[in-house]
Design a binder for these strands. Structure first.
Lengths: 118, 118
DNA sequence: CGACTCATACGATAGACATCGTAGTACGGG
DNA sequence: CCCGTACTACGATGTCTATCGTATGAGTCG
């Protein structure tokens, strides 16, 4: 079965022009999802869902990844049994130049502020 | 209850350091609130609630303004019978430098894209 | 005072959402 | 072929949220 492509397990993604700013902001307004995006940005590549150590069950984790995908923030693809996740940096930067960087910088700044106590 | 009212017309605002990024993003993830913020930014000054022509009732309008205030996005103050609303640009820029501008630019870009249809 | 305007508060309601547990599907290897 | 791993789908639930209508408070002006 070397030829059986992973075609039957395709995941629906919004096209670049279907991505809405409100949706992106909604996706990032959840602390867990913001954390996921920060880790993806820090890694720069693709990470499987199980690489994240989130304080919720697997079901909830799946839910959050789906929200991120359906809002156009990440791209997901199966690779064997794993599901790889990557930021849609290019598409987002085409649509909203500089926004993702600003958001990540803001998140980093807040994290530093909180870490330094508050 | 005429005299005991402790200046019941004061409005609670979060202190600058209490403003959370997630809250700001949540506030702006609603199309109506994003529109309000865009108009406030375009005006640059203060606007009364009634200056906005939103497709919802007064009650709902009040609700959205309150969300924006409680999340630290706008500052509200009474002036006679009117309630004036102004962006907290300074506080937001202290906390998250450049973020507000990026968000407004992204919103403007999306509005232009939608206006040009697709 | 009395009427009018601006905005609020309260109660209700319908829909969205975060979370969980359980059962199930897809893939890879012994 | 059966098992383990990785992720999903479904149903339930409690909470949050956007919306409305109505009644109310606060200020202004006749």
């Amino acid at each position: 079965m070397t030829s059986t492509a992973v075609t039957s397990r395709e995941l629906p993604h919004p096209a670049r022009d279907e991505i809405r700013l409100e949706g992106v902001l909604h996706a990032l307004s959840d602390p867990l999802r913001l954390q996921i995006v920060r880790e993806l940005a820090a890694d720069g590549g693709e990470l499987s869902c199980s690489r994240f150590d989130l304080p919720v069950t697997k079901s909830t984790t799946t839910h959050h990844f789906r929200v991120l995908r359906e809002c156009g923030v990440i791209r997901q693809a199966y690779r064997g049994t794993a599901k790889m996740n990557g930021l849609r940096e290019g598409d987002l930067d085409d649509l909203f130049p500089g926004l993702l960087d600003s958001l990540l910088a803001a998140a980093a700044r807040q994290a530093a502020r909180i870490a330094a106590d508050g």
